[in-house]
Design a protein around this nucleic acid. Structure first.
Lengths: 469, 469
DNA sequence: GGGTATTTGTCCGTATGTATG
DNA sequence: TCATACATACGGACAAATACC
C-alpha cells in the first residue's frame, strides 16, 4: 500500500516514486509484475494522473521499470542494480512466503475417522445440480441478503425430508441452517447462556462437541454410557439442565440408544425443564438395526433441539448442517439472534435444496448405505476371522468406524505403536474420555469410510501381524 | 418414518400397513405419490421384502394404492374413502404448510442499507469462475475435510492482497476464514473469554456487532465518537481491555479515523495490553479520500485483530469473511480451536481464490468503486440542490449510505413517517446508539447501494416534497 | 477467429505557488 | 513591484495494445 502525506517535505510524485522503488527492491513487486496503471493508481490515491505518471517516468528512467503502450509498466530484472542499504533492509516488509504442502509422514494404511469414500461421492450428479444452481442465481439474488435462517424453500424441503425419514414433525420456521456442528453448537451456547452454563454429555463422547462447549465457557458434566445409552441415574444426580447426546450412534461406541432410554431421557427433560441436544449426525448410516424414532419426534415441540448434517453422508467440505429448535428457543432466537445472517452461501443452499427436492438425496443415501455396509461387513468379517482371538469388536452399530479392544492386555498406546511399525495408522479412543483415568485404555478406533475394500483387506492383514501374540 | 416394534402384539407387516395407511390418510403421502419400493423399504426397515410386500398388498386390496410392474405403488384418490377418526386426528402430524413469500408492504423507493447493486455484480465472470472451480473439485476434495482455517492457497492469496492494498503484512498462517462478521466476532468472543468479558465500542456504532457481543455474554462499554474517531480519553477511563472499531468508515457516521487517532489507539493498546478489533468492512469503497494505513499495518503482529469481508464489495450471499490474528491469539486459537472446521464450503473458497489470484477481484473493486462513487455524488448533489436548506448531510465518507440531519427540527420519527407517506423508506439512526437518550434524534439513514440512478433521482424528489416546510 | 470496446502509455495544454532577477 | 522560469499537480485527446464477444 502506498501512503501519501500532503504535509511532507517531498512532493507527492516523489513519495510515490520512493515507495514503489522500495517495493521493487524488497521483492514485494517481483520482476515481471505490472505496476497499477496510472489511471487506477491515481484514482486510489486520489491524485492527478500526471502525478503518478511523473513517478513512473522517474522509475522508468532509472531502469526499475519499462513501459509499453497498451500493456503498462513492467518491473525489470534488477541484476546489478540492487544493493540493499541497511535502511532498505529495515523497511522491508515481512512478505509471507508461499506455503508448501505439509511433509507429514504418509502411512500406507490409514484407518482415519471422519473421511468418506471418494468412490461413493455422486460427483456427476453433484456437478450437474451445482451448475444448474449456479445458473439459477441472478444478480439480484447475489446482491441482497437472503433469508436469515436459510432459504425458506430449502427449510421447507428439509422439514418434509425430516418428517419422512426421521419422523421429525417440525415447521420450516423451526429450522436454522448452520455451517457444520461447530456453528450449530456455538449458536446454541449463546442461546442457552442465560439459562445455564452447565452441560451434561456422554462419557466417552465426541471430543469436538466437548471443545465447543468448553470454549463457550460451559462447564462439562460427564455422564457414563451403558449398553443402551446414557446412565439416566447419573444424569438425574448431575445438576445439568442441558444434555448433549448422540442417540442414533453414540460416539465412539456406536451404541444405539434404546427407545426406552429415549423415553426416560425425555421424561427427565420434562420433569426438570431440561433440554436435550440430539445430535443425529450419523443416523442415515444404519446397516442392520431398525430405525428408532428420533427423540424430537417423540417430544413434539418442546425440550429437544435436533441437529443434522450433510457432512457425513454427502460431503464434509460442503459445510451444511441444520438445527430444529423447540418453540421456546425459537422465540428467543428470533428475539436475540434475528439479525444473524445465515453462514451458508446461497449457492450451497440451492444445491442442497435441489438435491432433496429432486429425490437424488434419498437415492444417494440408499446407495451410500449399501456401499458402506459392504465395507463394514467385510471389515467385521476379516477381523473376526484373522484376529478373533486377539481383539474384541465394539461399535458394530457405528456408521463409519469400529472399535477394537485388545484381548491380550495390550494398551492403546502399544496397539497404535505396533500398528505404525507395520505401516498402519489406527487411532486412540482415550481422547474421547473427559476423565481418561476411569478408562480401561485398551481400545483403538478404525475408521473405514475412506478405504477401498482392498485397502481394508491389506490393512487388516497387517494389523493381524502387528498384534499377533 | 415407519416405526416397528418386535414385541408388539401385531405382526410386522400389519404395523407397516397401519402406519402407511395413516400417512396416506393424513396427507403426508399425497395422492399420486409413490411408496418406496419394496426392496428399499425392506432394507431401511431391516425386514424381509415379503413383509413389506404383504403390507403393500393389504393397502392395495383396500384401494389405498395401486401397483404397476416397473413403476411401483402409487397412492390413489381417497374420495369417499377417508373418514378421519378422532384417534386419527390426534395422531396427525403437524405437516408444515408450504411457505409463501412474505407479503410485506413494498415501498416504491427504499433507501435500504446493506444491499448492493445488481447491475454492478460481475455475474458472467462470477459464473465462469464458479463453474471452473466446480470442475476443479474432485471426489477426493469433497470427501475429505479441507484445511481447517481455510485452504492454504486462498489464505496466501489473501495475505498478498492485504499487503498490496491495505499494507497489512501478515502470513497466511495468521488468516482464518470465516462465514460473515457474526462468525468472526463469535469466534473472537470465544477466544477472549478467559481474558475479559468487557468490550468497548463506538457510540453510535454498528448494532450487528453489538448484538453478537451481548449474545456472547460480553458487557458493552460505549465510547463516544468525535470528528476524527473515537474519544480516546473516554476509552482511557473505561475499564475495557478490548475495543471494537470501524476506522476506515465509522458506522454509521462514515467518519474516517485519522492517522493520529490510529496511533493514539495503538498506543492505548500497547500500554494496557489491550486488543483492537479493526473491522475494515468497508475499506474498499473509498470515493475521494486517500487511503489511510490500517491500524494492523502500523501495529505489526500485536494488539490488533483485523477483519475483512467480501459481503460489501462483492456479494453478501457468498458468506465469506476473514480474520487476521496477532501471534498471541493465533497460538491460543491453535491450542483451543484447532479442531474447528472452516465454515466456508470448499467451492466458495476456490471461487474466491481464483477471483483474487486472477486479478479479477482488484479489477472488480475499481469498477464497483467508480459506479458507487457516481451514485454517491449524484445523491449528494441532488440533496444539496433540492434540500440544501432543510437537511444537513453527514457521513459523506461512508461507503454505501449517508446520513441526513433535519435543519427544521424534525425528529427522526417524523422524518421517517413523512417519507413513508410519500412512498419512500428511510431508516432510523437511533438504533445505532446504545443509549439513545444522549442522542439528538434528528437524523435518518439513506442506503443507496441497491438503487439505480433514476431511482435516486425520483426518491430524492419525493423526499424533498415530504420534508418541505 | 475476427471485429469491437476497453484499457493503457503518451503527449498536450493549463493552473498554481515559489524562487529569481 | 513586476516579469520570468521552474516545479508540481491536474485533466483531456490520441493511438497502440489488449480483452471480450
Amino acid at each position: 500500500m502506498i501512503n501519501l502525506d500532503n504535509n511532507a517535505d517531498s512532493p507527492l510524485y516523489m513519495q510515490i516514486y520512493e515507495q514503489i522503488k522500495q517495493e521493487i527492491i524488497n521483492g514485494v513487486l517481483p520482476e515481471g509484475s505490472r505496476l497499477p496503471s496510472t489511471r487506477h493508481l491515481s484514482q486510489t490515491l486520489a491524485v492527478g494522473r500526471n502525478t503518478v505518471e511523473n513517478a513512473y517516468l522517474q522509475l522508468s528512467s532509472e531502469g526499475y521499470v519499462t513501459s509499453r503502450v497498451g500493456s503498462g509498466f513492467i518491473v525489470q530484472n534488477l541484476n546489478g542494480l540492487t544493493y540493499l542499504t541497511n535502511e532498505d533492509k529495515c523497511n522491508k516488509p515481512i512478505k509471507s512466503s508461499r506455503p508448501e504442502s505439509k511433509p507429514s509422514i504418509v502411512y500406507p494404511h490409514n484407518f482415519q475417522f471422519g473421511l468418506l469414500s471418494a468412490q461413493n461421492f455422486p460427483l456427476n450428479i453433484w456437478r450437474k445440480i451445482s451448475s444448474r444452481a449456479l445458473s439459477s442465481l441472478t444478480a439480484e439474488d447475489l446482491t441482497t441478503y437472503c433469508d436469515k435462517k436459510g432459504e425458506l424453500e430449502l427449510r421447507y424441503n428439509l422439514s418434509e425430508y425430516l418428517l419422512k425419514s426421521r419422523g421429525v414433525s417440525c415447521s420450516a420456521n423451526q429450522i436454522i441452517l448452520c455451517a457444520g456442528l461447530e456453528y450449530a453448537l456455538s449458536l446454541l451456547c449463546q442461546l442457552l447462556r442465560n439459562k445455564t452454563t452447565q452441560i451434561a454429555l456422554e462419557e466417552p463422547g465426541y471430543i469436538g462437541a466437548r471443545n465447543i462447549f468448553t470454549n463457550n465457557g460451559f462447564q462439562l458434566l460427564p455422564v457414563h454410557i451403558e449398553n443402551d445409552g446414557l446412565k439416566i441415574s447419573e444424569l438425574e444426580n448431575a445438576s445439568a439442565k442441558v444434555v448433549y447426546v448422540t442417540p442414533s450412534h453414540q460416539f465412539p461406541n456406536g451404541i444405539v440408544t434404546s427407545i426406552q432410554k429415549r423415553l426416560l431421557l425425555l421424561d427427565w427433560a420434562k420433569r426438570n425443564d431440561g433440554l436435550i441436544i440430539e445430535d443425529d449426525y450419523d443416523s442415515e448410516l444404519r446397516y442392520n438395526s431398525r430405525p428408532i424414532p428420533s427423540i424430537i419426534s417423540i417430544a413434539g415441540n418442546e425440550n429437544v433441539v435436533y441437529i443434522g448434517t450433510f457432512s457425513k453422508a454427502l460431503s464434509p467440505s460442503l459445510r451444511v448442517s441444520y438445527m430444529v429448535l423447540p418453540q421456546k428457543l425459537l422465540d428467543l432466537y428470533h428475539k436475540e439472534f434475528g439479525m444473524y445472517q445465515t453462514p451458508v452461501s446461497l449457492l450451497e443452499q440451492r444445491v442442497i435444496q435441489e438435491l432433496i427436492s429432486s429425490g437424488y438425496w434419498e437415492n444417494h443415501l440408499r446407495k451410500t448405505c449399501v456401499a458402506y455396509k459392504k465395507k463394514h461387513d467385510l471389515l467385521i468379517h476379516l477381523i473376526s476371522e484373522t484376529m478373533g482371538r486377539i481383539v474384541k469388536i465394539h461399535g458394530k452399530n457405528a456408521g463409519l468406524h469400529i472399535l477394537l479392544e485388545s484381548s491380550q492386555g495390550l494398551t492403546e498406546r502399544e496397539m497404535i505403536e505396533r500398528a505404525k511399525e507395520h505401516g498402519v495408522l489406527v487411532h486412540p479412543v482415550s481422547t474421547f474420555w473427559l476423565n481418561p483415568e476411569n478408562y480401561s485404555n485398551n481400545m483403538v478406533l478404525l475408521g473405514f469410510g475412506n478405504l477401498s475394500e482392498t485397502d481394508i483387506v491389506e490393512g487388516i492383514k497387517k494389523l493381524a501381524q502387528a498384534w499377533k501374540a
